[in-house]
Design a protein around this nucleic acid. Structure first.
Length: 168
DNA sequence: CGCAAGATTGGC
DNA sequence: CCAATCTTGCGT
């Protein structure tokens, strides 16, 4: 059961991938050799260039480039100058979509999560299949989860009302 | 080249 | 309620 999620897992529609990531172990191998696992408890889906809440809505830029690529990669970015948010890119090449990891077991909030995992710019584009320091493993699907509107994107108009937040 | 604002958090 | 802190995208 301790195998990494397959590339195929990430290549599906982000709205399928996001809820299935709940309950999966996020594994972080730190620079000092120690390793920790965190169960994913909360995620949000960001889907396509039309989704105004998605950073890729502003076009293909150096910052959003990785979201346009094939799934199975990491998209990290600095928000408010202090917090690194972790996203997992999904879908086929050319269709920008990603899952924001908002919460892991024991920690609440995407910013605190990034601090715990000691994320930084070097994780941008990290390949979850090949990375020696960050990946997600398979586990039994969760039987029950909740949905709600996404957090902190009121500027996105009607897109802010999408029930694209999934949590345990 | 300057500037405003952001998928947040914690302190006043 | 608001500052912290810095990258990005867009306007000048």
């Amino acid at each position: 059961m301790n195998e990494r999620l397959s590339l195929e897992f990430y290549l599906r529609d982000v709205l399928e991938v996001a809820p299935e990531l709940l309950g999966k172990p996020l594994v972080r191998q730190f620079a000092d050799g120690s390793q920790k696992q965190y169960m994913i408890t909360e995620v949000e889906a960001y889907r396509g260039a039309e989704d105004l809440a998605c950073h890729a809505a502003k076009g293909r830029t150096p910052r959003t480039e990785v979201m346009f690529q094939e799934g199975g990669k990491v998209y990290v970015y600095l928000i408010y100058g202090m917090y690194w948010l972790l996203n997992l890119v999904t879908g086929e090449e050319g269709y920008p979509s990603a899952v924001l990891i908002r919460g892991i077991d024991g920690f609440s909030g995407p910013g605190r999560l990034g601090r715990e995992l000691q994320l930084d710019k070097s994780f941008y584009g990290e390949n979850l299949q090949a990375s020696p320091r960050l990946w997600v493993e398979n586990a039994k699907p969760v039987t029950e989860y909740k949905t709600s509107k996404r957090i902190g994107i009121d500027y996105a108009g009607e897109w802010a009302n999408k029930m694209w937040r999934f949590y345990l």
